[in-house]
Design a protein around this nucleic acid. Structure first.
Lengths: 200, 200, 200, 200
DNA sequence: AATGAATGAGCATTCATTCAT
DNA sequence: TATGAATGAATGCTCATTCAT
């Protein structure tokens, strides 16, 4: 078997095991067994357990970025672009619960563990949101009062929290499409009844 | 020393230690040292390490709920109420980074660890949001098309993600008031320029 | 059980296990079992495996130094003093093969492992020899041409190599008394037939 | 490359690595890298790691024996012969610290590991000393009271301990010639001032 | 109630050895 | 012969929990 295959197999296995048990409760032997390799083999491809976690992020989020960017390239309306992002994110997270959990739980955990590790891929992913917002502001579609740096976090946080609940339960009450539309309505038009003013 | 005192002291210590090191990297002896009691003493008040974590949530979030509810009791405009929630949440999280981290990181981790554990306090806290939304819908201030169950998550997720970034960095770029206003603008009026329609 | 007891028990056990298996082949669990304590208990008294080895030296050689010094205090003739040293060393090494092996084998090994570790007790022990030689030189009993720093090593090396062979085999061909006398004859009068000159 | 070459290359590499790191800390991969062969190749020439150690002894000490015997063949005075042995031993050990360490440390370690292994080459080497002593006794140059079996060990032990210290430090206080002369003076004439008697 | 010494199960990692190529 | 990727047994050390005092 080629090295690339085995590296990838271990990443796949680790994503599954981390999602199921969490990083700290995951055993190297669990990952090895899942990947159908010997424990020692893992150390031919990764420096240590934590390195596996980092690699899982980089790889999985890297894929996600690629897919999202490809979808966005076909669209020019910043309103639609944001919806594409939301729908894609929710779709992937609903389908790939392993990845969803790893992002939601381990990503946070990891950031504390190694201060050095700059989660570049993750930042890159979230920054897609702010670049869409900026684009919309240039086209006078999004208000100039919106701060892209805060709005991207609010938008991502909203999607993340929703998909978090999905991973916890088997909540199928809301479809991706419904949820996505609802989030878009909130973020684009807000929750106020038309004509209703902001307080103060 | 009264038992209540010691129980509380351990909770305080644990909140601090969990926030600093994370649940898995925190040692019972760390908590004991921080609380200035013997290791064994902790087991007179808690069943096990995880039980401490649960208790930290219950206590800290319980306090938060109490404070928020007290503030909301004085207000009747659902728009202002939501802003009060946002401002209070962000204020507490910015001030008490220990609690912020425990909520953001450990809460997520814990849910996986014990399926049995119903995070009632946490649910109760988030449900404050949906009850405000429902109230606003009854008063025809919030659109009836908004689904409170989804919107509460989007709203909480937005606040949570923003405060998450605050705990990670020493990001003081945005004040609580600015941030709160920005989030309120997004959630109440959306990001679209007035008159601009939703796509499709 | 008092701490002092347990510390000592572990030292005793470690001496036995190191002697039997060698440092690298000795398992912490072997020592724990021999000392009738739990594995973890060992780490309450020692920092790590190597620390145990160092402690074995310090303790065992410390005892030896004490005994030798007590014996020497009663004697003033540097010729007899050297014989006392030789006899005591050989006696102890023949009786306590564990200690003998630890000194001969592990002492050497250890020196390589930690450059920092100054084997003070061991140096102190060997320096007893050179101080006797210096004393003899002052009394014009030992030639002034003898360099105490080299002679102490030659003398100790001779005793050590002889006792090394004793630990390897069950060699009882030579008694301690015979051996000691023989070594003394060599070191005091040399091997030459009286009147025979040094070459060159 | 011829097999003989590779076998020899591995021996050379192993001597170097064992000396530097010690047998237990030496890795097969270290030796392989040093010998510029693949790890697996080593197992075409040696049964296992320990077998390499044995082979290092056999080869290196074999060379030493050969050289010493060649030097001794030219000399007939047992006093000079012993000095030749001492000088040659010290010279080689000072020059080839790798070999010195391997002899001093690993030789001892190994004896414990395989009881079966008869260290023939090493015995042969040390027996050169006793055969010189016997020769001197026949020529009435060495006292008949000297027991060659004990004296050889005392003599070798003296040389070994001195060279041990050399390998540990960068001790250049004593030259080989000074040291050799000093050892010869001690072993041939003893340490007593002429006319001074043995005690008792 | 409080202590903290003692316990021992549990795991990341290493490395001698094998074997398919 | 030679390679080096793969194996998996082996172990020092940690730390949550217990319990004699």
């Amino acid at each position: 078997m080629k090295a690339a295959n085995k590296h990838s197999k271990i990443i796949q296995a680790a994503t599954k095991v981390f999602a199921k048990k969490g990083f700290f409760n995951a055993r190297i032997s669990d990952i090895a067994k899942e990947a159908k390799v010997a424990d020692g083999t893992i150390y031919l491809y990764f420096n240590n357990k934590f390195d596996i976690l980092i690699s899982v992020f980089e790889e999985e989020i890297g894929n996600l970025i690629e897919q999202v960017k490809k979808l966005l390239a076909k669209e020019s309306d910043p309103r639609v672009m944001l919806k594409i992002f939301a729908t894609k994110h929710l779709t992937v997270m609903k389908k790939n619960k392993n990845l969803a959990e790893v992002i939601q739980i381990e990503l946070r955990q990891s950031a504390k563990l190694i201060k050095d590790y700059r989660n570049n891929k993750f930042s890159e992913y979230v920054n897609i949101i702010s670049s869409i917002i900026k684009l919309g502001q240039e086209q006078n579609i999004y208000r100039s009062s919106i701060q892209p740096g805060l709005a991207k976090r609010a938008f991502f946080g909203a999607l993340d929290e929703i998909s978090r609940v999905w991973t916890m339960s088997l909540d199928t009450k809301y479809t991706v499409e419904d949820t996505s539309s609802q989030v878009m309505e909130i973020f684009l038009s807000g929750m106020l009844v038309p004509g209703m003013e902001l307080p103060e």
